[in-house]
């Protein structure tokens, strides 16, 4: 933003700003000038300080478009699992909409109701919509957002250009619902999404009998508007619906801290 500098002999408001009050006044001025973001929108906090501190509103913003991308084609189950874990956070009876293209079933299979149950999401709350092509998927997503009836909308789209993603983001912002989009693993282009997560698999946590207790995912927040990117290994407990950071992080890349070259990792997949 350009702050006009006073010419010689001319005084301007900005020249008077000095001292400790200047920053607060400038921020107030900015708030007045920038297009208004009304009050408090709801957020879905992860419950983990490490994650929530990187996100602008302390959690996943409702009323925004979020993209979830699997690291590689074979980690698509982990990406689905992450989405289901996010949905399981939203604890209300009314429905959630899941739009899935019907042609994806042969590749990676279809959602299994008992599996959803096992991850803590009651399958009776989902409405599954199968579409035949991309146009129908976009229409169904727009329709679901416009009605404002569900509590969250999930979709799966392969090609999304900037303009369409902006429209979807605005539609989600209008009704205050979170829109989670699953994209294919080769997604690199920019979009109007508020956050983009890349999900990879990790060895699952075992309980004291040696049985698989909680799934673990390698989350990488690639882009986050007004926030900081980062990567973590989180563990999801389906009984308590809570995320926790996995205990042993032996990965040296993680010890470098957040912002560790996410684009290069995306190129690797």
């Amino acid at each position: 933003m350009l702050i006009p500098m006073p010419r010689d002999g001319e005084t301007s408001d900005f020249a008077d700003l000095s001292g400790t009050q200047s920053r607060a006044v400038v921020i107030a001025e900015l708030r007045r000038l920038l297009p208004g973001r009304e009050g408090s929108r709801q957020t879905l906090p992860f419950g983990l300080a490490a994650l929530d501190s990187c996100l602008p509103e302390g959690g996943l913003a409702c009323g925004a478009l979020h993209e979830v991308v699997p690291e590689a084609q074979n980690t698509i189950a982990a990406a689905f699992g992450f989405i289901v874990a996010l949905l399981a956070h939203i604890a209300c009876p009314p429905p959630l909409i899941f739009v899935m293209p019907a042609y994806g079933g042969r590749q990676h299979g279809r959602l299994f109701g008992h599996g959803l149950n096992g991850l803590g999401l009651d399958p009776g709350r989902l409405i599954l919509i199968e579409t035949a092509h991309r146009k129908e998927t976009l229409w169904a997503l727009a329709e679901a957002l416009r009605s404002g009836a569900p509590h969250a909308v999930v979709g799966m789209i392969d090609r999304l250009d900037l303009k369409t993603s902006q429209k979807l983001h605005l539609a989600a912002a209008d009704c205050g619902l979170p829109l989670l989009l699953m994209r294919p693993a080769q997604t690199l282009e920019s979009s109007a999404a508020a956050t983009r997560w890349r999900v990879g698999t990790r060895r699952a946590a075992r309980d004291r009998f040696g049985l698989y207790a909680r799934p673990r995912w390698h989350l990488q927040l690639e882009r986050c508007r007004n926030g900081r990117p980062g990567q973590w290994v989180v563990e999801y407990d389906h009984v308590a619906h809570c995320f926790s950071l996995a205990a042993a992080l032996a990965d040296p890349a993680l010890s470098r801290g957040p912002g560790a070259q996410p684009l290069q990792q995306a190129g690797r997949s």
């Binding site: 009314p94 429905p95 909409i97 019907a102 959602l111 109701g113 008992h114 959803l116 399958p123 009776g124 989902l126 409405i127 599954l128 919509i129 199968e130 579409t131 129908e136 229409w139 169904a140 329709e143 679901a144 009605s147 404002g148 009836a149 569900p150």
Partner: peptide, 27 residues
């Protein structure tokens, strides 16, 4: 009126996509 809006949404989706495309899970 979320229930009515949900019913309206399901109707609209069924009309456009066909009734066998809008489904729910049942054990």
């Amino acid at each position: 009126d979320r229930a009515e809006r949900c019913a309206a949404l399901i109707d609209a989706l069924r009309q456009r996509l066909g009734p066998h495309r809008v489904r729910r899970f049942e054990p």
